[in-house]
Amino acid sequence: MYKLLALFLLAFVYVQVDTVAQQKILTDAVERAQREGFSGVILVAQDGEILFEDALGLRAYENRSLLHEDDIFELASLSKQFTAMMIMMCKEKGLLDFDDQVSKYIENPYPGITIRNLLTHTSGLPDYQAIMDEHWDKSKVAGNPEILKYLREYAPVKSFDPGEQYEYSNTGYVFLASIVEKATGKDFVELMREWIFQPLGMYDTDIRSLEEKAKVETFAAGHLKDENGKYVNAATFHSDDYTIWLGNRKGPGRVSSNAKDLLKWDQALYTEKLVSKETMEEAYTAFKLNNGTRSYYGFGWEIKPQSPFGKMVMHTGSNPGYSTIIVRYLEENKTIIILNNNVHPDLMRVVEAATLSLGKW
């Protein structure tokens, strides 16, 4: 679905229409999504000012509680942009360099991989979840030390040599969080609060345990359809089990937040509150593969050099019951954030409508 979205955004040609008509494109798409059962929060902004925000559907289908605009969602892989930022901040503090060998910080059976390879999904590392699924005692909860131990112990074959190609890698972002801990001597979760969430006033954003999430009244549960086509809590599905027995992993996911906090994050990236503009430009530059061609991924961001509004960076996330996306048009400071808690197919259609609507408000 998201590859199709990327192609749409890359190929889209902007057509000038009047303000009311452009706004109606989005409101019509949202109304259609609501009729078809979409559940989530939609936010569209220009220069940090919210132009459109709405909450549709239910926080929990079990008790029919309504979603609100400030409700908190599991971000899934949107978390990777925060992990990448932690590495960038470590670099600016002189604690590491992007072209350092991973083996300088953590023992692993895969030589020749740099931190830059991890950031850009060009490491060739195998999938940690497959190894853990096969060998881990699922009555216990694993985190990064256990994941790294099992990768060393079983040493599954790498996919390719570092820099040869792009292949999305959750394993690489486990490594990155572990490198942050090695370089700083501090816990990754605590450090992310100290370095990012608290300074930016992202008070609804955190890396929460299952127990902590259960205590947050405004946490939107993820939902999937059962065999009868009825939405039920995704935690009841076998596909969600890994979120428990891999519940202490850090780096590739597990950040939870709401749309307004993500807008604070978005706007902070235009400033030098966290890192310099030069470092952010590196983050927005697609990696050059060994054969000289460009991939389409920087440091925690998919890169689209051309779009209706100039250069665009984006990321999607997917967990059982959740689909999330942030789209940022850098040259015009336009932002689209959608957090969905029932994996609804209308998400892409709403993003397309939001893009069309952004031409003139």
Rank of each mutant, 00 (worst) to 15 (best):
S169G: 07
L66P: 06
G310I: 06
S318K: 14
G48E: 14
Q306D: 15
W265S: 02
T316V: 07
A183N: 06
V102T: 01
L358P: 12
E282Y: 07
E69L: 08
E62S: 10
G300I: 04
N291R: 07
L125M: 08
M1A: 12
S257Y: 05
G94R: 06
H121V: 03
V141W: 00
L56Q: 10
K260L: 05
L262W: 00
N144E: 00
E181K: 02
Q22V: 13
V232Y: 06
G321I: 12
F73D: 00
F299Y: 15
T236A: 10
D47W: 09
K260G: 14
L66M: 13
I303M: 09
A259D: 03
L58V: 13
V327W: 07
K334R: 15
G172K: 01
Y105M: 00
L95V: 04
E272V: 04
E211A: 13
L5Y: 04
K138D: 01
P345V: 05
V157M: 13
D241M: 05
M88T: 10
K138E: 02
S169R: 02
M88P: 07
S318L: 10
G143R: 01
T184V: 03
A84W: 08
M89N: 04
L26N: 07
A11I: 09
F299T: 07
V216R: 03
S39K: 04
T285P: 11
W245L: 00
V41L: 02
T355W: 08
Y128N: 01
L5T: 08
G317F: 02
A142K: 00
L289V: 02
R35V: 12
T243E: 03
R349N: 15
E278G: 11
M132H: 10
R208F: 14
Y297S: 11
E164S: 13
H344A: 03
L263T: 12
D97S: 11
M202Y: 01
V20H: 12
K230R: 10
L58Q: 01
P109Y: 05
K334G: 11
T316S: 14
D241G: 01
R35M: 06
S239T: 09
A60L: 11
T293N: 13
W195V: 08
A21E: 15
H315E: 08
Q165R: 14
R193M: 10
E331L: 11
L347A: 00
L330H: 08
D204M: 09
V174W: 00
V13P: 02
W265K: 05
T293L: 13
Y203L: 13
N144G: 03
F175I: 02
S139P: 04
Q22W: 04
K182M: 07
L176H: 09
V20A: 15
G163Y: 03
E331Y: 15
